[in-house]
C-alpha cells in the first residue's frame, strides 16, 4: 500500500512538473515579467534572492527568466524531434512490416547498423553533415532516435497483420493501402506512444548536450544546454548560473521518464 502511494505521488509530481514546463514553453510571460535578453550592468552575478529567484548571470540577465524562456526551445526540440521520428518511424516500419521479405530484410539490416551506434554519436554525425543550428539539432536528434521507432513499428505491424480483422478486411477485397492505414497503423500506436513519451526525455537531454557543445542555438538564446554551458566556468564563484538550468533539465527528463514508464506498465497490464 505504501509503495503504491509513493509511486502515485511520484507520478503526480512528475505530471505536475511537466505541465508547468509545458506552460513555461507556451506562455512564459505568466511566470516572469522580465525580458530574457535584457542586460543590466548594475546587477551582475547577483545570488538568488528577492527580485531574482535564481540569481543573475555575468551580464545581469535574470537566470529565472532565461530558464523559463528556455523551456520552449528545449521542449520544442524534444517534442518536435520525437514527433518527427515517430511519424517517419511509423511509415518506414509499417512499410517494412508489410513489404516482401527481401526488402524488409535489407531495411532491417540497415536499421540494425544504425542501432549499433550510440544515439548521441549519430546525432553528432548528423550535425557534422547538416551544420549547427536549432533546426538542425532537432533533425539530428530525431534521426538518432529513428531506428528504435522503425523497429517497434515494424514488430507491431508483423503482429497486427496476422490479426483476424486484418485478414477479414483483406478477404473482403479492401485496398491494401487502406488496410494499412485504417486497420494496421492505429493498432500499432499504443506501444509507440509509450516509447515516444520516454523518448521525449532522451531527446531533451541529447538536444541540451548538443547545445552545450555549441552546436545548437547560439548565445544569447536562452536554451537550457547553452545556459548550462555558459555557467560552467563560474561554478566556483556563481553556482546558480549553471545550477538552475541543470536542475530543470534533470527534473524534466526524470518526469518524462516516470510518466512514460507508468504508461508502459499500464499498457502491459491491459494487454495481458
Amino acid at each position: 500500500m505504501r509503495g503504491w502511494a509513493r509511486g502515485r505521488l511520484g507520478l503526480v509530481a512528475a505530471v505536475f512538473l511537466l505541465l508547468i514546463v509545458v506552460a513555461m514553453a507556451v506562455a512564459p510571460w505568466i511566470f516572469t515579467p522580465l525580458d530574457p535578453l535584457a542586460t543590466d550592468t548594475s546587477q551582475v552575478l547577483r545570488p538568488p534572492g528577492w527580485g531574482h529567484p535564481f540569481g543573475t548571470d555575468q551580464t545581469g540577465r535574470d537566470v529565472f527568466t532565461r530558464v523559463v524562456y528556455g523551456a520552449s526551445y528545449s521542449l520544442g526540440v524534444g517534442v518536435g524531434a520525437t514527433a518527427a521520428a515517430l511519424v517517419v518511424g511509423i511509415v518506414v516500419g509499417t512499410l517494412a512490416g508489410l513489404a516482401p521479405r527481401v526488402i524488409d530484410g535489407v531495411a532491417m539490416r540497415g536499421v540494425e547498423i544504425l542501432l549499433a551506434f550510440p544515439e548521441f554519436l549519430i546525432a553528432l554525425f548528423a550535425i557534422a553533415v547538416l551544420g549547427p543550428g536549432p533546426v538542425n539539432v532537432a533533425t539530428a536528434v530525431g534521426v538518432a532516435a529513428l531506428p528504435a521507432y522503425i523497429r517497434v513499428a515494424r514488430a507491431e505491424t508483423l503482429v497486427v497483420r496476422r490479426a483476424g480483422y486484418v485478414e477479414a478486411a483483406r478477404g473482403l477485397g479492401v485496398h491494401p493501402l487502406r488496410v494499412a492505414v485504417a486497420h494496421i497503423v492505429p493498432n500499432t500506436l499504443r506501444p509507440l506512444g509509450v516509447i515516444a513519451t520516454i523518448g521525449i526525455g532522451t531527446t531533451i537531454v541529447a538536444a541540451a548536450g548538443l547545445s552545450f557543445l555549441g552546436l545548437g542555438p547560439q548565445d544569447p538564446t536562452p536554451e537550457w544546454g547553452l545556459l548550462l554551458s555558459g555557467g560552467r566556468n563560474l561554478l566556483g564563484q556563481a553556482w546558480w548560473v549553471a545550477f538552475f538550468p541543470g536542475v530543470l533539465i534533470t527534473l524534466t527528463v526524470v518526469s518524462a521518464t516516470v510518466v512514460g514508464r507508468r504508461l508502459r506498465r499500464a499498457g502491459e497490464g491491459r494487454r495481458s
Binding site: L37, T39, D57, D219, P220
Partner: peptide
C-alpha cells in the same frame, strides 16, 4: 558577454 551587452 561583452557582445550581449553591446547588442542590448
Amino acid at each position: 558577454n561583452l557582445a550581449n551587452l553591446i547588442q542590448d
